[in-house]
Design a protein around this nucleic acid. Structure first.
Length: 833
RNA sequence: GCCGAAGUGGCGGAACUGGCAGACGCGCACGACUCAAAAUCGUGUACCCGCAAGGGUGUGUGGGUUCGACUCCCACCUUCGGCACCA
């Protein structure tokens, strides 16, 4: 008996070499076969892969290889999200050029992925820092500019003082930079924006049409888009009706409860309303006080609201009554109109402010009995509301809007929280923005035939003092594309999220030279059928890519409305209760793991330890368990190789061999086909690969049980059964642990790759049970078990249960009230005293 | 506050459509092999009572529906994630 540990190093290197020599995962468009586009979020080439990468690429490879075996033409590409700040930081720290640093990292990480044995079509590899890549997004930028989907404006933006660049709203988390966690400060700056708000409604609507996406991601996107419906209307200034304060409200039904109004401190109308020098001074002081607060302080929940009452008043158009006007820090310039009508009776913020400043509170909705709260925001019957009295909130909203429209005072209005995507970055290592500023013509886009605008190699990267490109004279100074006169190039680069917004399209035809992608290839492969990646991109990359795809669609470049049909958001890899990090010292190095236990073991454990969407708790002992399991498989095959080799190959559901006639043989064959059904079901429905692994482990346990009892299965049936079991095992295990599967497949005497084999099919005849064990309950408690023929009639089962020796004592001195029979499952005898 | 996800052994986690709770693995205990250890293999392992047979309790809490509830309904608690003076 062999007890050798399986030689994973040789096996893994051997099959990786063979796959590469055969170009086994190279694909091209083939209209005769169904396609499957399997994509994992591409990595930033930071230096080395980490366990999070191992997990996501193991999941992706599992699905890709499974789909291969199901007969799909599988596109499974890999590339590099190669622009970004870490490369520049490395340049500053170590004096190495970002391009060199990036390409060295790519080379190393590529070799790591190859050691994992992932089934990528490496012919399609791309790096976004390559001019042949980013030239196409420069072209799209120009087209977006023509359509008003890209525009430049001065605005207050999020500035990260550490990264020395602007951040988009999506890249600020609780007032801090998403990458470096520094506190973000507001800054007034010129920059480019993509008009994602033009797609707010469509992005929101499609959230309901992406059933393959996890609910939590859709929820985050819906929250982020933040649609609210209401009304917008004017409040004329008392005594100066030519000046109007425009307000937005989601509660137009509450207009009769409006007892004051509020402007954001920086609202432009304030300067026109306030003319008295003393009051101007008070306003200036108040504004300064508000501006001093940092973003973090403003986010603190329980801070009191601060306001300043202005001498001007506004008129409530519904009542004709003049009411006080404030500026206050709880009204934001960036949302709605920057001004509100305040209804303290039905809005908690207004209620708090009214209490603080002694303002009247009017209730316009009937409170429920026993209401003891402050502002009431629920539904009810309107009161104190003139012509709205007696209506419900919903009815009153409609009537109030009608009233405004009839008089030309306002209208129904939808607002979104989503802001346009600021894409200018004051950094070097990114795609140049293809725009020039001519002394005569003003802003002019670069001519298409001059693209790409190549990022110059020779910039001084210091990490401060503005965009490094501004100092590269031969880059900055250029002829105007329109008049040929003197012009300066834009010296910002694009947000790297622009590159990741379309890489999945480039993969369809990565070497295409006449456009972003070959439309025929994109039509064949798109959309991505299964996308896999981390939850951290729920409102970053995943929102941007959806938007960009819709823009490309409207530019006539793609036909799809959405880029990703199904999304799997895998959880983090944690260890000892925390995310792996160098500072916590809980990092497991994939290189080390692959060297000591092998890629198949690393992959198996990361698929087995948790369902993919949950966090994975890394456990070194558990990894050893995965390794032990593969050794168990290996040992069984080697120890039975002769017997297996002499048996006929099953070669199909039940082909090749005649079904066993012995009871033990049939039972064992049922285990084989149950395993096929269970594993297949996990792939087709739940994606809970941990239970698929469990099923495969149980099959191996069953193999060892047969080995332990040599006489149980008749020797005439045994070799064929064992062979069917081992072949099935190999096919099922393939997507999880491809190297050992290939090796076992070849040991069994097969020539070709296991991944060119069809996925096994469960044979219903083999799964059918002749006998079933029924649980017999008395009053819901298990008291006995019966073995009966499958499908035995209820009456017969009921009689057997009532007569059962173990049941009888529980029926003594009680009366049987009812007997519930669930066919092939259980009998419950219900009794009464 | 609003939205979402989730609470099951010592741990990671199973349980179809309401039908034997705890599959599979880790850990632990005992045993085999060994001079010994590691590795490997075998047996056991929710908790309580019992030598055992067996009995009782148990899926965050409290109710409810049902012959029967981890699963359905109502109320609540806790954890995690997102959004947040968004009018």
């Amino acid at each position: 008996m062999s007890t050798d540990r399986y030689p994973f190093r040789e096996i893994e290197a051997k099959w990786q070499r063979i796959w590469e020599e055969r170009r086994q995962f190279h694909v091209s468009e083939d209209p005769s076969r169904p396609k499957f586009y399997c994509l994992e979020m591409f990595p930033y080439p930071s230096g080395r892969i980490h366990m999070g990468h191992v997990r996501v690429y193991a999941i992706g490879d599992l699905l890709a290889r499974y789909k291969w075996m199901r007969g799909y033409n599988v596109l499974h590409p890999m590339g590099w999200d190669a622009f970004g700040l870490p490369a520049e930081n490395a340049a500053i720290e170590h004096g190495v050029h970002p391009a060199i640093w990036t390409h060295e990292n790519i080379d190393y990480m590529r070799s790591q992925l190859k050691k994992m044995g992932i089934s990528y079509d490496w012919d399609r590899e791309l790096a976004t820092c390559d001019p042949s890549y980013y030239r196409w997004e420069q072209l799209v930028f120009i087209k977006m500019l023509e359509r008003g989907l890209a525009y430049r404006r001065r605005s207050t933006v999020n500035w990260c003082p550490s990264c020395q660049t602007v951040l988009a709203n999506e890249q600020v988390e609780a007032g801090r930079c998403w990458r470096c966690d520094s506190e973000v400060t507001p800054r007034e700056i010129d920059g480019w924006f993509f008009k994602i708000t033009a797609y707010a409604e469509e992005l929101l609507e499609w959230c309901d049409r992406l059933p393959g996406w996890p609910e939590r991601v859709l929820t985050m996107q819906r929250n982020w888009i933040g649609k609210s419906e209401g009304a917008e209307f004017d409040l004329p200034v008392d005594g100066a009706p030519e000046m109007k304060v425009r307000v937005f409200t989601t509660r137009p039904d509450t207009v009769f409860g409006m007892t004051y109004a509020v402007l954001a401190p920086e609202h432009p109308l304030v300067d026109r309303l306030v003319t008295d020098p003393a009051e101007r001074q008070r306003v200036a002081a108040f504004r300064a006080e508000v501006a001093r607060e940092s973003e973090i302080e403003r986010l603190a929940a329980d801070r009191p609201k601060r306001g300043l009452r202005l001498s001007a008043r506004v008129v409530n158009p519904f009542t004709g009554v003049a009411i006080p006007l404030f500026i206050a820090d709880y009204v934001l310039m960036g949302y709605g109109t920057g001004a509100i009508m305040a209804v303290p009776g039905e809005d908690q913020r207004d209620w708090e402010f009214a209490k603080q400043y002694g303002l009247p509170i009017v209730e316009t909705v009937q409170r429920p009995a026993g209401w003891t709260g402050e502002a009431f925001t629920g539904d009810g019957i309107k009161l104190n509301s003139g012509f709205l009295d007696g209506l419900t909130v919903a009815e009153a909203k409609r009537r109030a809007i009608d009233w405004l429209v009839e008089r030309g005072l306002g209208e129904g209005k939808v607002n979104y929280r989503l802001r346009d995507w600021g894409i200018s970055r004051q950094r070097y290592w990114g795609a140049p923005i293809p725009v020039l500023y001519c002394e005569a013509c003003g802003m002019v886009p670069e001519r298409e035939e001059n693209l790409p605008v190549v990022l110059p190699r020779d910039a001084q990267i210091r990490g401060k003092g503005g965009s490094p490109l501004a100092e590269v004279a031969h880059f900055v100074h250029a002829g105007c594309p329109r008049c040929g006169g003197r012009a300066r190039r834009d010296t910002d680069t694009m947000d790297t999220f622009v590159e990741s917004s379309w890489y999945f399209l480039r993969y369809c035809s990565p070497h295409f030279e006449h456009g972003m992608f070959d439309p025929r290839a994109a039509d064949y492969w798109m959309p991505v059928d299964q996308y896999i990646g981390g939850i951290e991109h729920a409102v970053l990359h995943l929102l941007y890519a959806r938007f960009y795809t819709k823009v490309l669609r409207d530019l006539g470049l793609v036909k799809v409305d959405e880029p990703f049909m199904a999304l799997l958001s895998q959880g983090m890899v944690i260890k000892d209760g925390a995310k792996m990090s160098k500072s916590k010292g809980n990092v497991v190095d994939p290189d080390e793991l692959i060297r000591t236990l092998g890629a198949d073991t690393a992959r198996l454990f990361s698929l087995f330890a948790a369902p993919p969407e949950k966090d994975l708790d890394w456990n070194d002992r558990g990894v050893e368990g995965a390794s032990r399991f593969l050794n168990r498989v290996w040992r069984f095959v080697l120890n039975h190789l002769e017997e297996l080799s002499n048996a006929p190959s099953a070669g199909g559901p039940s082909g090749g061999i005649s079904p066993p006639t012995s009871g033990a043989g049939r039972t064992f064959r049922r285990v084989i086909h149950e395993t096929i059904a269970r594993v297949t079901d996990d792939f087709e429905h739940e994606f809970h690969f941990n239970t698929a692994v469990s099923a495969i482990m149980e099959l191996v346990n069953a193999l060892y049980a047969v080995e332990a009892e040599p006489d149980a299965v008749p020797s005439g049936e045994r070799p064929a059964l064992l062979r069917e079991a081992v072949e099935t095992l190999t096919l099922l295990l393939g997507p999880f642990c491809p190297h050992i599967a290939e090796e076992v497949w070849s040991l069994l005497g097969h020539d070709g790759s296991v991944f060119r084999q069809p996925w096994p099919t469960a044979d219903p005849a083999a799964r059918a049970k002749e006998e079933v064990e029924l649980v017999v309950q008395v009053d819901g408690r298990v008291r006995s078990r019966l073995v009966v023929a499958a499908g035995a009639p209820e009456g017969q089962v009921e009689r057997l249960a009532l007569d059962d020796d173990k049941v009888q004592p529980w029926l003594a001195s009680r009366r049987v009230a009812r007997v519930v029979v669930v066919p092939n499952r259980l009998v419950n005898i219900v009794t009464r005293a």
